[in-house]
């Protein structure tokens, strides 16, 4: 088993009187794909938001790369190599596709206001590097032909890929993907699955929240199942498909495994914004 990159320990989160997560623990091995699944309202997006710094958890610890990161701001976590995508698309609609991906390099670059306004030599060199790396990331995801278009004009599927390119361009250690294939057609879903495996190949650790079970079963190394804010199962995809409690949760008592089971495709109503 590879070393653990992220571990979540006894995570608690509540909104008003609603307990969104209670005592959730799991470990994410480096270089692998971990899927977090569960019915609507299970707390999946809340977990992502707690890990990525959008929410500050009420209790428990999130340990990333050996450091406790509870309550650290998202932009600080991005500099440590932890980034994410969003369930409801969050591309920068008024920026070009290339610029969207260039923003993705913010965490690993550092020139500020003054050097930008004066176009100092170091700033120009950094700018060239940013442009170059962004172009490479676009090519990796097959978006190079749309580079100069405003991102808001792309198709839904292409915008999803822009988000992924933006998250990957800075070569992060861990990317949290909130429903990467929601709303995509089967061909686009297939492409996205290939892209995720290619990303894994590069050594990037992925955590994905996803409703598309066939994708989850195909790409994941490990699956964590949440139900009403509690972890009810964890294991490799095969064992999860046969796990009695998972079957009870999804199928209401039948105990035959159904691979490629599609659950309610409607996105859960957890707010992605703080």
């Amino acid at each position: 088993m590879p070393e653990t990159l992220l571990s979540v320990r006894d995570l608690d989160m509540s909104f008003g009187g609603v307990q969104a997560l209670s005592q959730v623990s799991f470990a994410v091995p480096a270089g692998r794909i971990t899927a977090v699944i569960g019915p609507n309202g299970a707390g999946k997006t809340t977990a992502i938001n707690c890990i990525s710094g959008v929410y500050r958890p009420r209790g428990g610890r999130v340990v990333f790369n050996g450091h406790t990161i509870n309550g650290q701001a998202p932009h600080v976590l991005a500099r440590q190599g932890l980034t994410r995508t969003f369930q409801n698309l969050q591309v920068f609609a008024n920026l070009s596709v290339l610029e969207n991906v260039m923003v993705g390099l913010h965490a690993v670059t550092g020139r500020g206001f003054v050097s930008a306004m004066l176009r100092l030599p170091a700033q120009r060199a950094e700018e060239r590097r940013i442009r170059q790396q962004a172009r490479e990331a676009l090519e990796f995801l097959g978006l190079q032909d749309s580079a100069s278009l405003p991102a808001g004009q792309l198709s839904y599927g292409d915008r999803k890929r822009v988000e992924l390119a933006r998250a990957l361009v800075a070569k992060p250690k861990l990317v949290l993907l909130d429903e990467p294939v929601a709303g995509l057609n089967p061909a686009e879903t297939e492409d996205m699955g290939q892209a995720l495996l290619a990303v894994r190949q590069q050594g990037v650790t992925l955590v994905l929240v996803e409703h598309d079970m066939s994708l989850v079963m195909r790409v994941s190394d490990q699956v964590v199942v949440l139900h009403f804010g509690r972890k009810i199962a964890q294991g490799d995809p095969q064992s999860i498909q046969r796990h009695p409690e998972v079957l009870r949760t999804y199928l209401g008592g039948r105990d035959e495994p159904i691979p490629g089971l599609d659950m309610d495709p409607a996105p859960p109503q957890e707010a992605a914004r703080a």
Binding site: S52, V54, A73, P74, H75, A78, R79, T83, R84, F86, Q90, V91, F92, A93, N94, L95, E99, N100, M102, V103, G104, L105, H106, A107, V108, T109, R111, G112, F113, A116, M117, Q123, E126, E127, I130, E163, R166, A167, A170, A272, R273, A274
Partner: peptide, 21 residues
């Protein structure tokens, strides 16, 4: 510039801008 893109990005989506640093 890097900063200018960051500003325009946070105008479009503050959460996504923060998520990339």
């Amino acid at each position: 510039s890097r900063v200018g893109r960051g500003l325009r990005a946070l105008h479009d989506s503050p959460v996504a801008a923060a998520a990339v640093g």
